[in-house]
Design a protein around this nucleic acid. Structure first.
Length: 204
DNA sequence: GGTGGGATTAGCT
DNA sequence: GCTAATCCCACCA
């Protein structure tokens, strides 16, 4: 069952979002582009298409939080793929990740930007910006716009979860890859991916 | 248009 | 004590 699902996911023929999470993390980072992040919060629904991601790998990647093993903070990175990993950064912002690989490995995909689709008014209420392209064009920004917080750390991002990822309807026209942003280790690795031409990415 | 610094806290050394 | 997967604003050009 597990391996059959895994094989289907590799060919990207399946429609089930949980199949996607079985992909190797680097491929998951690309496959998440074009999918939709949805949050049904008490204040209402917000959603957006994921347009920018970064992969963090266990092997050979010193920028990965799991690189030095499991701690209290990064524990959910070692859980099953398709769970959320939310952590505090710079003492004031949160970052939202999708756990990848297999249980116990410790890999994740940082969601860096979304193109807002539903709940634009609520997003504007949560963020103090007028520009729509500034609403969720950065990891800290999208967390604020979507109403994501530390309470979402470790929850599943599929099924009936209030915070979930829905399959893409079409493949992005072109995906660009660069080195990752805001890190001081593993700077040479081309593990950042974004939908080429999108006005909603954090940086071109 | 671009850059430099401040905010603020958990976790590691 | 210092660093960190960030953001925003003041300031200069």
């Amino acid at each position: 069952m597990f391996y059959q699902v895994k094989h289907q996911a590799h060919t990207e023929r399946s429609r089930d979002i949980t199949d996607l999470f079985q992909l190797p993390t680097r491929r998951l980072a690309r496959a998440l582009l074009g999918t939709t992040l949805v949050h049904d919060s008490p204040e209402g629904r917000t959603s957006g298409v994921i347009v920018e991601t970064e992969a963090y790998l266990f092997r050979g990647d010193p920028a990965c939080h799991a690189h030095k093993g499991m701690t209290k903070r990064n524990a959910s990175m070692f859980g099953p793929p398709g769970m959320a990993y939310v952590y505090l950064i710079y003492g004031m912002y949160y970052c939202f990740n999708v756990v990848g690989s297999r249980p116990g490995v410790g890999e994740a995909v940082l969601i860096r930007a979304i193109e807002p689709r539903e709940g634009l008014e609520l997003m504007h209420h949560r963020r103090r910006v007028t520009e729509q392209t500034q609403l969720a064009s950065g990891p800290g920004k999208l967390v604020m716009a979507m109403g994501i917080g530390p309470e979402h750390d470790g929850i599943p991002l599929f099924g009936k979860s209030s915070l979930r990822i829905e399959p893409r309807r079409s493949r992005p026209s072109r995906i660009a890859s660069t080195t990752r942003i805001g890190i001081t280790k593993g700077m040479d690795l081309p593990l950042r991916f974004y939908i080429a031409g999108s006005r909603y990415v954090s940086k071109k």
